[in-house]
């Protein structure tokens, strides 16, 4: 086989079978719930869609506006609501996972400068393969 063709096929294979590129991840409907004045914690929500052919793993979220962002899940079992930390969220190919009220949420300490409805906050989602995606979340009431 000629050298250029081999290179082309190698690149093609990498493109098809390689790890999910950030281009295969779609993030939408990102928002942060406006909290009562003085509320110490805030909750954020968004949907992540994996358009790739291989699973993608969301390992964490960061933001310039928050000291840290935790991934949580609210579980209500036997009438008792509990929040639990999520180390990662796996997205199977073609799957969408949504962080939504009463379920998964991003949980962050309220910044000193309070956030009000209409504010915009940048969030960065980090994936296990080293990729990351930035998204802007609007602060609003549900």
């Amino acid at each position: 086989m000629k050298q250029p063709l081999r290179h082309f096929l190698l690149l093609l294979c990498l493109a098809l079978a390689g790890p999910v590129a950030a281009a295969d991840i779609e993030i939408h409907d990102a928002w942060i719930r406006e909290a009562p004045p003085g509320a110490p914690m805030l909750a954020g929500y968004l949907c992540v869609l994996n358009r790739g052919q291989t699973p993608a793993t969301l390992t964490g979220v960061t933001s310039p506006r928050f000291a840290h962002v935790m991934m949580h899940r609210t579980e209500t079992r036997d009438g008792v609501a509990r929040m639990r930390h999520l180390a990662e969220v796996t997205l199977d190919p073609g799957r969408q996972e949504c962080f939504a009220p009463g379920g998964m949420h991003l949980m962050m300490p309220a910044p000193e400068q309070p956030l009000r409805a209409g504010d915009q906050v940048e969030l960065t989602l980090h994936f296990a393969d080293g990729d990351s995606r930035r998204v802007v979340a609007a602060v609003r009431t549900p």
Binding site: R33, P36, A39, P40, A43, M83, P101, M107
Partner: peptide, 13 residues
Amino acid sequence: YTHCPDVCPNALG
């Protein structure tokens, strides 16, 4: 409780 940003604002809303 007020450190609860998901379930509690949901219920009060």
